[in-house]
């Protein structure tokens, strides 16, 4: 096994991504192979040293963004429902008028 493979295996042990077989091999190497143990120590140290880079989204921003997304979801839903209602209730002769209105609203949004 190459030293790069040792490092990858050690990383997998630290982050819990190994298969049962790989995990067994890694645990065996911990007690048998000083080179693997060294790689494991390095991987743990890197994990610890780089942990501070993880930033949580501020709670207020998280709520604001969620509200904005779900708000736009509601808007899409309301539009879809309204369209269905109009399609079934409006007399056929009024459709061309509605389409002209839709186009002008769409054109307004694009500006």
């Amino acid at each position: 096994m190459s030293s790069e493979e040792y490092k990858e295996l050690a990383w997998g042990l630290v982050y819990g991504t190994l298969s049962a077989e790989e995990r067994e091999l890694a645990l065996h190497l911990v007690s048998q192979d000083p080179e693997f143990l060294e790689a494991l120590k390095m991987e743990l140290e890197l994990k610890q040293r780089l942990a501070h880079l993880k930033r949580a989204m501020p709670e207020e921003a998280k709520e604001r963004v969620y509200a904005a997304i779900t708000g736009s979801r509601s808007q899409v839903l309301v539009t879809a429902v309204l369209k269905t209602v109009l399609e079934t209730t409006l007399p056929r002769m009024l459709w061309p008028v509605l389409q002209i209105l839709e186009r002008s609203v769409f054109a307004g949004e694009q500006q």
Binding site: L53, A56, A61, K62, V65
Partner: peptide, 28 residues
Amino acid sequence: HADTVFGYLAFKLQDRQIAEDLVQETFL
């Protein structure tokens, strides 16, 4: 996953406001 997405964007951009905007675009 909001924290993960924000963390990644903040790491790449080093700008909290733009990261928040892109979190919104991502989840939309």
